[in-house]
């Protein structure tokens, strides 16, 4: 699998990470090397194997539908880089 510049750019865009020209080239080389190295997995026949997303057969971990008090709004907002007394603030999302 060859990692092209287009792949790096598309992945960077999906990740919301801005790369300048130099960083894009550097990432292309480094990601390319890592992904090349990963090709070794293709030598394993895994056709019959179920993908394993959870390591132990733990299941049905659920809680009861009981309300607990929410936390103070001031605390919710305390780490926000921009906020009012009531809400977080972001640049306008509609034109």
């Amino acid at each position: 699998m060859k990692i092209t510049k287009e792949i790096v750019e598309s992945v960077a865009n999906l990740s919301r990470i801005k790369l300048d020209e130099a960083a894009t080239v550097k990432m292309q080389t480094e990601l390319g090397a890592v992904i090349d190295y990963m090709e070794i997995l293709n030598s394993l026949d895994t056709k019959e194997i179920e993908p394993m997303s959870h390591i132990f057969s733990l299941n049905n971990v659920m809680r009861d539908d009981l309300i607990k008090p929410s936390i103070d709004r001031q605390e919710i907002l305390s780490n926000a880089p921009d906020h009012t007394d009531e809400t977080f603030v972001v640049p306008k999302t509609v034109g």
């Binding site: 919710i76 809400t87 977080f88 603030v89 972001v90 640049p91 306008k92 999302t93 509609v94």
Partner: peptide
């Protein structure tokens, strides 16, 4: 919910 400022260039978020 997003609340858009009618005048300013801001959106307020309510979770």
């Amino acid at each position: 919910k997003l609340i858009h400022s009618p005048t300013g260039n801001e959106t307020f978020t309510d979770y």
